[in-house]
């Protein structure tokens, strides 16, 4: 009896989590004008429509570029900050760590508004560059925290050994520190990319003519529901799934061996 209850509970929990996604994907194959039951289909015409729409595809490319670029920059800056704070005794390093992590607690709306005000006066103005900068602001603390947490005594000793064997500081970084921290750096990269990929508020506030995919989807939604939106959503979802599965296989899977 209790066993059966457990299974039912699990099924309900999964249904609660996945029903929206399943509905979204299912009705992207809807052969009709509205993504609501009953399901008539299946058809791939909405996917053809989406991929044939240059606005949508360019938004998709924009999102990829902003995501990869901002995640890469977040990782480089996060790594350098973590390396500096982990390997050197600096005055006020606890305070510096706190300040680096603090943006995690600030809402995206506040960060977006702040950047909007700044970029209207100096710098690129509202654009993909501005949105990318915003994404670096939100992802840098995350990348820093992940990379800093995985810097242990093991790397430090290996770095010391490398230096003793005649490696310069640059060689130690390139040949020992970064390769040893590669799993953490890649995890930070993929996580940052995912956050940038579906971030809306900052991208909405800071882009104007060229927009990222979430902003484009939002403007589509204003003209009402359509299986087309479902198709875009499914593509976005597919990219996220591929990333998560890739992360699991290449990074976390490897540790178990």
């Amino acid at each position: 009896m209790m066993r059966a209850f457990g299974w039912v509970y699990m099924a309900l929990a999964y249904a609660f989590i996945f029903l929206p996604v399943v509905t979204l994907v299912l009705f992207s194959f809807q052969d009709g004008r509205l993504p609501v039951p009953p399901f008539d289909g299946p058809t791939l015409k909405w996917y053809a429509d989406v991929l044939g729409d240059s606005r949508l595809t360019s938004a998709l490319v924009n999102s990829l570029v902003v995501g990869v670029g901002s995640a890469a920059l977040s990782c480089v800056l996060g790594f350098l900050a973590a390396y500096g704070l982990a390997r050197h005794v600096l005055p006020g390093s606890v305070f510096m760590r706190g300040v680096l992590i603090a943006p995690l607690t600030v809402s995206y709306l506040i960060i977006g508004l702040g950047l909007l005000i700044v970029f209207n006066r100096v710098g690129p103005g509202p654009s993909l560059w501005a949105a990318g900068a915003g994404h670096v602001v939100i992802n840098l603390p995350l990348a820093f925290a992940i990379i800093y947490a995985s810097m242990g005594a093991q790397q430090e000793n290996a770095e010391r050994a490398a230096r003793d064997l005649g490696a310069s500081d640059v060689k130690v970084l390139a040949l020992v520190t970064v390769p040893m921290l590669a799993p953490a750096i890649l995890a930070a990269f993929f996580l940052s990319f995912t956050f940038s990929w579906d971030e809306f508020i900052i991208a909405f506030l800071l882009t104007r003519f060229e927009v990222t995919l979430p902003v484009e989807i939002w403007s589509l939604l204003r003209s009402g529901l359509s299986p087309r939106t479902n198709a875009i959503g499914s593509v976005v979802f597919l990219v996220s799934v591929v990333l998560v599965v890739g992360l699991e296989l290449f990074l976390f899977g490897r540790k178990r061996h």
Binding site: Q154, L165, A167, V176, M180, A182
Partner: peptide, 25 residues
């Protein structure tokens, strides 16, 4: 050259690359 207590080998390199690290530098 120091041989450290915990060996401090480079885990991402095979033994040949570990041993040839010094000459490489």
């Amino acid at each position: 050259t120091t041989m450290f207590q915990d060996y401090a080998l480079f885990p991402h390199m095979n033994l040949r690359d570990n041993v040839s690290f010094g000459p490489r530098m």
